[in-house]
Amino acid sequence: MNKIVPSGLKMLLFGVCLFFGSVNCFAQNPTQKSDFWNKVRFGGGIGFNFSNGGFNGSIAPSAIYQFNDYIAAGIGANVNFFKFNNQKFWAYGPSAVVLGNPIPQIQLSAEFEQLRINSSIQTIGGTLERDFWSPALFIGAGYRTNFATVGIRYNLLYDNVDSIYLNAWTPFVRVYF
C-alpha cells in the first residue's frame, strides 16, 4: 500500500507538469510578435501664453499608447517658464494625458500635471523665493491633422495665486509621431 501512494503521487505530479508544459508551449507562438511598440507614439506639446508684461512658455515631451483609432493615453514630463513683471517661475514635473478622437479631425483631451514651482520675485528689499507644488487638470479640444493638433485647453484647478499659468485658458500645439 505504501508503494502505491508514492507512485500515484508521482504520476499526478508528472501529469500536472505535462499539462502546464503543454499549455505554455501552445501559448508561445514564435511567429507572432508583440504589437505593443507599434502602438506607442512619441511627441508632446509646446504651449505659450502672452499678456501685458508677461509670458508663459512650456515644453512637454511625452509618449502615448494608441489603444485604437479613438482613444490614446500616456505619460510625459513638463518644463515651464513664466515671467511677469519682476516675477520669475520655473516649473517642472510629470503629467498624464488621455486623448479622444470622436472623428479624425477633432481631438478632445484630459491632462493632469503636477508641477514643482521654483519662484523668485524681485522687490526693493531683495529677492523673495518660494518653492511649492501646483497641480493642474486640463480639459481641451483641438483640430487634428495627421500627427499635429492645435487647440485650447482649460485648467479646472486654476488658482490665480499659486498657478504658473496667467489664466485658466491656454492654447497648445501637440505633436505625436
Rank of each mutant, 00 (worst) to 15 (best):
W90E: 11
P94D: 06
Q32R: 11
P61W: 02
V150N: 01
F20W: 13
N155V: 05
G8C: 07
F19D: 05
S163N: 11
F14N: 13
P135I: 01
C17E: 15
L128F: 15
L137K: 10
F132R: 01
N29G: 05
F89G: 00
F26G: 07
P61E: 02
N85D: 14
R174N: 10
A77W: 08
G76A: 02
F172G: 05
S51F: 05
S7M: 08
A91N: 01
I4H: 05
F19N: 07
W133R: 04
S58A: 09
Q105H: 14
N85H: 08
Y154C: 05
S95I: 05
Y165K: 08
D159R: 06
I124D: 15
I139D: 04
F84Q: 15
N155L: 04
P94T: 08
N146H: 09
G126Y: 09
F177E: 01
Q28H: 15
P30E: 15
S22M: 14
N167A: 03
D35K: 15
F132I: 00
A91V: 00
G44F: 01
P102Q: 04
N155E: 06
F55K: 12
S95Y: 07
Q87I: 12
P171Q: 11
L108N: 02
P135E: 03
Y165A: 07
V175C: 09
Y158P: 03
N68I: 06
K10A: 15
A168W: 03
Y143L: 03
S120V: 00
Y158G: 04
P61G: 02
G54S: 14
W37I: 11
I121G: 00
D159L: 06
S119P: 01
G8P: 00
Y65P: 05
A60Y: 11
Y65G: 06
Y70N: 15
F81W: 10
L115A: 10
N38Y: 04
V40I: 13
G142A: 00
E129M: 06
F20S: 11
K39L: 03
N2T: 14
D131C: 07
C17T: 15
F36R: 03
L18F: 13
W90V: 13
S7V: 04
M11A: 13
G57H: 04
L108F: 09
I121S: 05
